[in-house]
């Protein structure tokens, strides 16, 4: 039997912090969509056109949710909430894939989607409580010369394949390789996924959760932090720092 470090008991997972993680400060997120565009540009995400986009087929790996509540003039907003793959430590999407296209990376503790393994059963998407997965319903047109812009580090997906946020794993690999070649640890802030890199408000903070001194670890532990549907036991690696409306909160 091959060696592996996969825990036998789920409860063991509860004690792990995860490796890479993200904190999203909803108080700072302005909903500007820079992350959405950056994500699309970095990850070769296809655009689907007006009809399909309106029918819930757009391929946004990252969507910014918000809702208006109440009637004029007592209108409130729920605040902008970027929702992306939460890279669950205990991901519901993984076990349901019959061909191991959705698997867990032990090295990065991320939830991987292996595009060329995917046969398109879409079970993973149904089982994702965060509705974070998107499916290539067609071969979406990318007329020449738009394809010049494709990132060679990221697979271009064809029809019939599920895709989702990867935490820009191609960048993680690059940074890890760089650190390894220089014989050091990855520095805090060295690795930035496209969304965090673009975010003008610096509302998305990315880093190592297993380093208690990293910015993201510290933020995740503040009182404002919570995770989406923690009660489901999925161990999300994204922490949301809730929006504050009180005037004069001490900094």
């Amino acid at each position: 039997m091959a060696k592996h470090n996969i825990p036998e008991v789920k409860a063991d997972l509860e004690n792990t912090t995860g490796i890479w993680g993200m904190a999203i400060d909803q108080d700072l997120c302005t909903g500007c969509q820079a992350c959405v565009a950056a994500c699309a540009m970095e990850n070769n995400i296809a655009f689907v056109g007006e009809t399909d986009a309106g029918y819930g087929r757009s391929l946004h790996w990252l969507r910014i949710e918000h809702a208006f509540e109440g009637e004029f003039p007592e209108v409130q907003t729920s605040g902008f909430q970027p929702v992306l793959c939460q890279q669950c430590g205990n991901a519901p999407c993984e076990p349901v894939c019959p061909v191991f296209a959705s698997v867990h990376s032990q090295a990065q503790d991320l939830n991987l989607q292996v595009y060329n393994r995917c046969v398109g059963t879409r079970y993973c998407a149904n089982n994702c409580p965060y509705v974070a997965r998107v499916f290539n319903m067609r071969d979406y047109d990318r007329p020449e010369p738009l394809s010049n812009q494709l990132n060679p580090d990221v697979t271009v997906r064809r029809r019939g394949i599920m895709e989702k946020c990867t935490f820009c794993i191609q960048r993680i690999h690059k940074v890890e390789d760089q650190a390894k070649s220089e014989g050091r640890e990855v520095l805090d802030g060295e690795m930035q996924p496209a969304c965090a890199q673009a975010c003008p408000a610096d509302a998305i903070i990315f880093g190592r959760l297993d380093d208690p001194e990293s910015r993201v670890s510290k933020l995740a532990k503040t009182g404002r932090g919570s995770q989406l549907f923690e009660d489901l036991g999925t161990l999300p690696r994204v922490t949301y720092l809730k929006e504050e409306k009180d005037y004069g909160r001490l900094g």
Binding site: D52, Y55, G56, R57, G120, R122, A125, N126, V131, R133, V134, F135, N136, M137, R138, D139, R159, G160
Partner: peptide, 15 residues
């Protein structure tokens, strides 16, 4: 030939 786009599935109704 055209993908599941010609069917009615979408997000979140994948099935």
């Amino acid at each position: 030939a055209n993908g599941l786009g010609v069917a009615g599935v979408n997000r979140p109704i994948y099935w």
